[in-house]
Design a protein around this nucleic acid. Structure first.
Lengths: 245, 245
DNA sequence: CGCCAGGTTGATTTCGCTCAAGCAATGTGG
DNA sequence: CCACATTGCTTGAGCGAAATCAACCTGGCG
């Protein structure tokens, strides 16, 4: 049927089809993709592509978690974004026709499908709506990137931690029986620090400080937030209150 | 013919047509646009649109200079990008179908054309290449925004000033007879500081420091750089050497 | 048990911010 | 034409937040 790490079937299935990009495709096109697209498994620590590599196509995370990082010459790096099940990688490079600007490092065991550049162009030519779907996504991403820059430059570390947690709440937050908020962060402290743009020691201290102030409680990758309003108060004046509309 | 501030003719003409977006249009479409598009004059200090406004369409700078800013509740603001003759404003909001995230403030006397959302959609429907052109642009912008975030988080103020000057060199730099580089910055110190993400006092100090080190010389909005390599040396290890490829 | 990676804490330093004053260029009104 | 405000930029002194360097936990695992 296939090797241990490569499979041909069932890349585009289930909830993946709900992604705005694929929703514009009809049954036959999905089937066509499923017949063509290579899907392979990655273990944590492996890289799907590296900063500077030429872009050959885009990647679809069928299952798992991947970090997009930028490195500088010294050890320092920055985590640009997390990508989880259903997310697409490499579309920026593909559509800008530039090399990858980030390294895609697998954080949790993942299955990832690959769609070659030619296939994508063919699809877009056939379905102009697909271009629209990508346009919307990229424009939204650009807005987030600008927001993030603004925030990083103007807000204190503590405000940025609060903002980060509110972002993570969207994807990883749940209500606990007693009415408080539980966030199961999928990443390490170091990665969290790299997303906020801060040293991990400083993050530790800030978390401790906020814990002492009774705003939150941490245990490993789990964060409890008793009162979300207290977190919102940490944000500077008139910062966009609901980043994820 | 027209009021003092509104004109109907000649918005799309001359070098404007060289912009990748409009190059995909043929003569008849350009004429059609020129017949429809409102062009008006703005004085420095006026705003074309404001953060939070609903997006009605996009703006084309026929002539002039405009700053896109993000404000926070306190006085602080950040300059997201400069737009000059030929540049387009508002395409992010239009294509993401979101309100404006920035305020467009005119810095130099400008003539600006307005293209309503419906017109843009009509054009894209007729010319799928237009969608491609926008995709490329937005993806490129996204790359720059990520690069900028990375830089701001990992590099020192001094390195960021160096990087900024190398960016400005692309658009505003010229060779002087004696072989050194002259950059005629179109913006104030304050705006420069807002682009770098730093207080203007700190920028002043950094410029003085670099002047004392013999790397550059400033006089008002003019900057001389004797040796570009000295500037490059200021960049951290392995930072992308040629940001504008 | 010892080892090791990830995380926390402590001590110190440094960089950039804040607040405040000075200065040059431009504008304004008498 | 001069006195005086205003604006943009630079400089100074002091402070504070975050980085740095280094030690020390803690829990998982061979």
């Amino acid at each position: 049927m296939a090797s241990a790490s490569y499979r041909r079937r069932q890349c585009f299935a289930g909830p993946l089809l709900a992604e705005p990009e694929w929703r514009v495709l009809d049954r036959s096109e999905i089937d066509w993709l499923n017949a063509i697209v290579m899907c392979r498994a990655y273990a944590p620590g492996q890289c799907i592509f590296h900063e500077g590599d030429a872009c050959q196509g885009l990647y679809i995370i069928c299952e798992g978690l991947v970090a997009l990082r930028k490195h500088d010459g010294a050890g320092a790096s920055v985590l640009i974004r997390l990508a989880e099940t259903g997310d697409i990688l490499g579309y920026r490079s593909l559509l800008a026709e530039e090399p990858y600007q980030t390294t895609a490092e697998v954080l949790k065991p993942s299955r990832v499908g690959f769609v070659a550049t030619t296939i994508v162009h063919e699809l877009i030519a056939r379905k102009p709506d697909l271009a629209f779907a990508f346009l919307r996504r990229v424009c939204h991403d650009l807005g987030e990137a600008q927001e993030r820059f603004h925030l990083t430059v103007t807000q204190s570390l503590r405000a940025r931690v609060a903002y980060f947690l509110l972002l993570m709440k969207e994807d990883y937050g749940t209500e606990t029986p007693d009415g408080s908020l539980l966030i199961e962060l999928p990443i390490s402290r170091r990665d969290m620090a790299e997303m906020i743009g801060v040293r991990s020691e400083s993050l530790s201290r800030t978390i401790r400080q906020m814990t002492d102030d009774g705003i939150l409680a941490f245990s490993g990758h789990r964060a409890w937030i008793g009162n979300t309003d207290r977190l919102l108060d940490e944000l500077g004046p008139h910062v966009e209150r609901h980043p994820m509309t």
